[in-house]
Computed example of a mutant assay.
Amino acid sequence: MEIELLLECQRNDRNAQRKVYEKMAGKLYSVCKRYLKNDEDIEEALADSFYKIFTKIHQLQNPDIFEAWARKIAVNECLQKLRTNKALHISLEEYHLENSDFTLENASFEKDILSLLNFLPEGCRAIFNLFAIEGYPHKEIALMLSISEGTSKSQLNFARKKLQELLVHQNI
């Protein structure tokens, strides 16, 4: 992102904010869609993300990390929405969990896997996104979601197993 554009946003320049919105909306929408199923929730999380971005942009110390900073805001807004909807606390006792050897080593599956994420329960999908896509460790995920590390690991294993089953079922 251009430094001058971000400085203009810090001065509340509406044209600069519009340009940043146009450049980032698609990327942040994709982030929100990975976490949320409902279009209304996605749009609300996106709007809340941009509100926070533009009201807190003066706190951004390094313009080189703007996109990562904005993505983190969007992720946090989605997690907040999931917490509000109480979707993060699913009961794993309902499922028989087994260890899975499934990995995301083949990048050609990425698009198919992302579309299959919609079939996961929201809590598992959030943890899968945070761990496999965003790169957060289980300890940090546990703190973010107010769950134990073991729950994070179990839900990740469940997500991997379900994704593997869906991949086999879809012949991907």
Results as ranks from 00 to 15, higher is better:
residue 133 I to F: 14
residue 132 A to T: 02
residue 22 E to N: 14
residue 128 F to R: 01
residue 59 Q to L: 13
residue 121 P to C: 06
residue 156 L to G: 00
residue 153 K to R: 14
residue 111 K to P: 00
residue 6 L to A: 08
residue 1 M to E: 05
residue 117 L to I: 09
residue 44 E to R: 07
residue 45 A to V: 06
residue 9 C to H: 10
residue 98 E to P: 00
residue 90 I to S: 04
residue 105 E to T: 10
residue 62 N to V: 04
residue 52 K to F: 10
residue 122 E to F: 07
residue 17 Q to M: 15
residue 163 L to A: 06
residue 52 K to P: 00
residue 48 D to Y: 07
residue 111 K to C: 02
residue 69 W to M: 04
residue 95 Y to N: 07
residue 172 I to E: 05
residue 19 K to F: 09
residue 45 A to E: 04
residue 80 Q to C: 04
residue 125 R to W: 11
residue 29 Y to A: 08
residue 90 I to C: 02
residue 66 F to D: 01
residue 51 Y to P: 00
residue 25 A to D: 09
residue 76 N to V: 04
residue 154 S to W: 02
residue 21 Y to W: 15
residue 10 Q to D: 05
residue 130 L to F: 07
residue 52 K to L: 12
residue 38 N to R: 11
residue 134 E to M: 08
residue 161 K to S: 12
residue 83 R to C: 02
residue 104 L to F: 15
residue 146 S to V: 03
residue 113 I to K: 02
residue 73 I to S: 03
residue 142 A to Y: 13
residue 145 L to D: 04
residue 172 I to H: 06
residue 74 A to Q: 02
residue 150 G to Y: 10
residue 29 Y to K: 13
residue 28 L to A: 10
residue 158 F to P: 01
residue 88 L to V: 04
residue 150 G to Q: 14
residue 87 A to N: 07
residue 14 R to P: 01
residue 38 N to H: 13
residue 13 D to E: 15
residue 77 E to Y: 01
residue 99 N to D: 13
residue 156 L to T: 01
residue 63 P to A: 11
residue 5 L to V: 09
residue 80 Q to V: 01
residue 120 L to S: 03
residue 80 Q to F: 06
residue 81 K to Q: 14
residue 43 E to F: 11
residue 1 M to Q: 05
residue 121 P to M: 09
residue 58 H to Y: 10
residue 151 T to G: 02
residue 79 L to E: 04
residue 8 E to V: 00
residue 106 N to T: 03
residue 32 C to Y: 10
residue 113 I to H: 03
residue 135 G to L: 11
residue 125 R to A: 12
residue 114 L to A: 07
residue 65 I to R: 09
residue 37 K to S: 14
residue 17 Q to C: 13
residue 86 K to R: 15
residue 102 F to Q: 04
residue 157 N to P: 00
residue 152 S to W: 09
residue 41 D to F: 11
residue 63 P to Q: 08
residue 164 Q to H: 10
residue 160 R to T: 03
residue 167 L to A: 13
residue 33 K to C: 05
residue 135 G to S: 08
residue 123 G to T: 05
residue 44 E to T: 07
residue 83 R to D: 07
residue 97 L to V: 13
residue 39 D to H: 09
residue 100 S to Q: 05
residue 8 E to F: 14
residue 94 E to V: 03
residue 1 M to V: 14
residue 57 I to A: 04
residue 40 E to K: 13
